[in-house]
Amino acid sequence: MMAHATIYVGCTVPLLLKGAQSRLFPSHSPLGVLRHSAFCYCTGNGTIKSKRKMDHLERTANNFRQEVITQAKVCGITNESETVKRLRLAITNKDFTFKAGQWVDFFIPGVSVVGGFSICSSPGLLEREGILELAVKHTVHPPAHWIHTECTLDSEVALRVGADLHGYQEGKGNRHKLGTAKLYYSAKNTNELLFKKNILGLMKAFPGKITCCFHVTQQHSQICKELQPHITEGRISEKELEKHVSSDTSWYICGPPPMIESISKLLTNIGVPRNCVFFEKWW
């Protein structure tokens, strides 16, 4: 499948960064081949149904997982925002690998609940430096709470990779033409726009191929000059998205359930086919 354009709509940006940081859309792009359980289509009326709250392992029980479980040591902790910490993890097992679009099962000694976190660094960083990075938002969920309140440098955890988006197509020689990617990224304020410098860097590195519109809904301070041309105040609107509707555009939504629910309904209203809309279902 070759997409002329790809639209990302969300409150987080893992797929764009992971694909682009490995030199933007490798020959077997995760944007083209979506494993059956890794992403979910919109339902017929644009709504998203969820049953009782399940833990990470229950929700992803049918997803592919590598057999390799590796020990890892925390070698860096950075506050990306007031609510998000970035962890740098030194990987001890040289056989541990991952591809853009995957998450990790996150095992913490003494914590019975297993976490599930998207990887926000590129496979290239792991190959070069043996480092993997996660960006984790603060919640009361035990693994996230541990990362924000108890995790320290040299804390030891274990990781296992899940959700291979390349799936069975890998190795079949399919090539994917580089299309264009438009990111609509919404947050409360510019401090919560994680990886904004990375995104601006990608826009400069791939002019015309990657563009981004940042939205802020509760900005009270002055916006820096570098960001000003790319900032829109208020929520992502129907008017903005409808100009991208075409038969060869794929839409990827990432964010909390109410946001995914709202945007999926909006896309249905403007005529986007259901099979062109994808989102990660983490609840």
Rank of each mutant, 00 (worst) to 15 (best):
V33G: 01
R175F: 07
R23N: 14
A5D: 07
N174E: 14
L24M: 12
I131H: 08
I69V: 15
I270S: 05
F278L: 09
R274A: 08
I7Q: 06
R65D: 04
S250Y: 12
K225I: 13
V104L: 12
N269P: 00
C254H: 01
S262K: 12
L24N: 09
I69T: 13
Q219N: 07
H166N: 11
A100Y: 01
A3C: 09
I119F: 02
S122E: 00
P143N: 10
M54Y: 13
F106E: 03
A90V: 01
I199P: 00
F39M: 09
A20Q: 02
N93W: 02
K225N: 14
V111C: 12
I48K: 02
E133M: 13
F64T: 13
H176A: 10
A3R: 05
P123Y: 06
S81A: 08
S37W: 08
L17F: 11
W146Y: 15
E242A: 12
C75W: 03
I131K: 04
F96D: 05
H230T: 06
G171T: 15
N191K: 13
L87N: 00
A135D: 14
G255V: 15
N45H: 12
Y168L: 06
L153I: 14
E238A: 13
F98L: 06
G10H: 05
V114A: 08
E233Q: 09
P30R: 05
I48V: 10
F279W: 01
K51T: 07
E226V: 13
C11M: 15
E242H: 08
G116M: 05
V74W: 04
S122K: 08
A100T: 00
L159Q: 14
G173R: 00
H230K: 09
E240L: 15
I77E: 00
S22W: 05
Y184T: 01
A5E: 11
T217V: 15
N275G: 01
L227V: 06
S29Q: 04
E133L: 04
Q21R: 14
F25S: 11
W146F: 15
F278W: 12
Q102W: 09
R59P: 04
L153A: 00
L34C: 03
Q71R: 13
S22A: 12
N62P: 05
H220C: 05
G32C: 11
G171D: 15
E233A: 05
R52G: 12
T47D: 04
A20R: 02
S22R: 11
L125N: 02
G110N: 11
G32Q: 03
V13Q: 10
C75D: 03
H176M: 11
I91P: 00
C42W: 00
W251P: 04
T180F: 07
